[in-house]
């Protein structure tokens, strides 16, 4: 798989080779792929999303060649085991994909040397962020590194702000919490310092952030899904939000706006 340059840039000053790594929020496996490519001894890719777990296994672990993997099901859909899955791919012996809640990470205290949270914090509301930070701090070994990559709040006037607002409104209605919270770099820097992490550096990963058509439609889908599940008993608000999300996605198309940053910290000890 191709490791995104956002990931390679965030990792290029980090000691990865030979380290026990935790990828907090595996997404589609981009950072997991970067950690393995950089020689991690072991990567625990933790996600509470079964589709993400499956995609990570398939992309990082299961690939022999490249290309042509659009749309295939691989027949591995329903039969995946729920916990760590030791596939026989190139990285099988170094990768464990864990389907778990990051607020209760199934790893012992002090068991990892490097933690990555690439695009994680924005999907955590403040309460969850606090609990997750405690867990990350618990599993970190003395001297461990922490890399936090995320987005500054989109600038005033960015059309994506409106779509994110609709996505959040739908999520609040459906689940009682926002879908996305964009924490400024300065906020997370002080926040993790408050959890005992020594700040090491900040760098810009993307500026502007390219919200492509595929991102825009993925966020519109999220908003519409949440709105649909909120529709009953929302007095029509759910339907209105879904329609607004679709309209905004069509109007926006794509937009380049804002900044994605990378913060690095070290655990004393």
């Amino acid at each position: 798989m191709d490791v995104p340059h956002t990931v390679t840039t965030a990792l290029d000053d980090q000691p990865v080779a030979g380290k026990r790594c935790l990828e907090a929020g595996a997404g589609v496996g981009n950072t997991t792929g970067g950690l393995l490519a950089n020689g991690a001894a072991r990567v625990y890719a933790v996600t509470n999303d079964r589709d993400h777990a499956r995609t990570t296994r398939r992309r990082v672990d299961g690939e022999g060649g490249d290309g042509g993997d659009g749309g295939d099901e691989n027949g591995d859909g329903a039969n995946d085991s729920d916990d760590s899955d030791e596939n026989s791919g190139d990285h099988g012996d170094r990768l464990a994909v864990l389907e778990a809640d990051l607020r209760a990470i199934p790893l012992p205290d002090g068991s990892v040397d490097l933690i990555t949270a690439h695009g994680l914090c924005n999907v955590l509301d403040p309460a969850s962020l606090s609990t997750v930070a405690e867990e990350l701090s618990r599993v970190a070994a003395p001297g461990a590194q922490l890399v936090v990559d995320d987005y500054d709040p989109p600038p005033d006037g960015a059309a994506m702000r409106e779509l994110f607002a609709v996505e959040n409104a739908a999520s609040e209605l459906a689940r009682g919490r926002p879908a996305l919270t964009f924490y400024p770099a300065a906020f997370l820097r002080r926040f993790f310092a408050g959890h005992g992490w020594e700040f090491e550096r900040e760098r810009a990963l993307l500026e502007p952030v390219p919200w492509t058509e595929s991102h825009v439609s993925a966020h519109a889908d999220e908003a519409a899904d949440a709105a649909a599940s909120a529709a009953d008993g929302s007095g029509g608000a759910g339907d209105a939000l879904a329609a607004t999300a679709r309209r905004l996605a069509a109007e926006i198309g794509s937009e380049s706006a804002g900044r994605m940053y990378s913060l690095a910290f070290r655990r004393p000890g």
Binding site: D2, T6, V28, E213, H215, A218
Partner: peptide, 13 residues
């Protein structure tokens, strides 16, 4: 990369 990507449903970069 995202214009071209075979990986579905990416919310992030």
């Amino acid at each position: 990369r995202h214009d071209d990507s075979p990986v579905p449903e990416q919310l992030h970069h």
